[in-house]
Design a protein around this nucleic acid. Structure first.
Length: 275
DNA sequence: ACACGACCCTGTTCGC
DNA sequence: TGCGAACAGGGTCGTG
């Protein structure tokens, strides 16, 4: 799940989850809980009520009226749903039961997700966020900031840098390829060798692509659905991701999309128009 | 401080 | 059809 999918899940949560005390919670894989024990987590949730929901990078923030925040990371395969029942229990990672009987549930087939709880006022200090860059849409994140940040990478490619959450928070493997295609930058180039103008294009395109993906409800390549069970629509707008061998939408029949592997992850790009 | 590899998991698809 | 390999929206840890 990348930032647009998390944002869409937040926007599709029922509005009336707030203000209802938590009467019970379930954690099924204790090794997924970070920084406190599952029993401490469950004890601190008991009696608290959600007051609102937010996001930092790809992390969901579920704010409580106890000045604490429940943090969910969905990993690759996380899914959130709200139901009257705990079932099905397969792949269930965590559930919170409200006093009206509803369960707010986090499913995670691959168990790459993470859970934590923090004092709301101390969220920036939490290990999840301490080294995280600004979010993609934070006005404080300027070309100057990005240019300076790029210099610390000795030999990282721009594609690898875009996946690093200490560079820009929110991009993942799908949108990194899409951003570089839009910015016409070759994903193999060293990030520190990019000109200020090129980094400006990368930043602009990051904002355009992620905003566009949010507007479409995220990307459902495989099985991603939002909190109401609906698929996203941005998969129809992807220009290079998983389009290996297809003609480049800019170059036409003059060039085809290529797939390479960087840091063990697929990258898709057009070698003709991305310089 | 950063580069690099290993590792954490399950499910689906692909090639023989 | 069976079966192993490859791959999948992510991140952390240890080593050098």
């Amino acid at each position: 799940m990348e930032l647009p999918e998390i944002e869409t899940i937040l926007r599709t949560l029922p509005l009336d989850l707030t203000g209802r005390p938590i009467v019970r919670s379930v954690v099924r894989f204790s090794e997924r809980v970070c920084g406190l024990s599952p029993s401490t987590l469950r004890r601190r949730l008991l009696g608290a009520a959600f007051i609102g929901f937010g996001r930092r990078g790809k992390f969901m923030l579920l704010h409580l009226d106890t000045h604490r925040t429940l943090i969910w990371h969905l990993g690759m395969s996380g899914r959130v749903s709200v139901d009257e029942s705990l079932a099905p229990v397969k792949h269930l990672l965590m559930a919170v039961k409200l006093d009206d009987g509803r369960f707010v549930k986090l499913y995670d087939a691959r168990r790459f997700g993470r859970i934590s709880l923090a004092e709301t006022g101390e969220l920036p200090l939490h290990p999840f966020f301490r080294r995280m860059a600004r979010d993609y849409d934070d006005p404080v994140l300027t070309v100057g900031v990005l240019t300076r940040s790029a210099q610390r990478f000795r030999k990282r490619s721009v594609k690898e840098a875009l996946l690093d959450q200490s560079f820009i928070a929110g991009l993942g493997n799908i949108y990194a390829s899409e951003v570089l295609f839009e910015a016409r930058v070759d994903p193999r180039r060293s990030v520190r060798a990019l000109s200020r103008q090129e980094l400006a294009r990368v930043l602009d395109c990051t904002r355009t692509i992620l905003d566009g993906a949010i507007a479409r409800g995220g990307t459902s390549i495989r099985d991603y659905v939002d909190a109401s069970g609906r698929r996203g629509g941005f998969q129809h707008r992807l220009k290079v991701y998983q389009r290996e061998g297809a003609p480049c939408v800019r170059c036409g029949d003059n060039s085809t999309v290529v797939r390479i592997v960087q840091n063990r992850r697929s990258t898709f790009f057009c070698p003709r128009c991305q310089k």
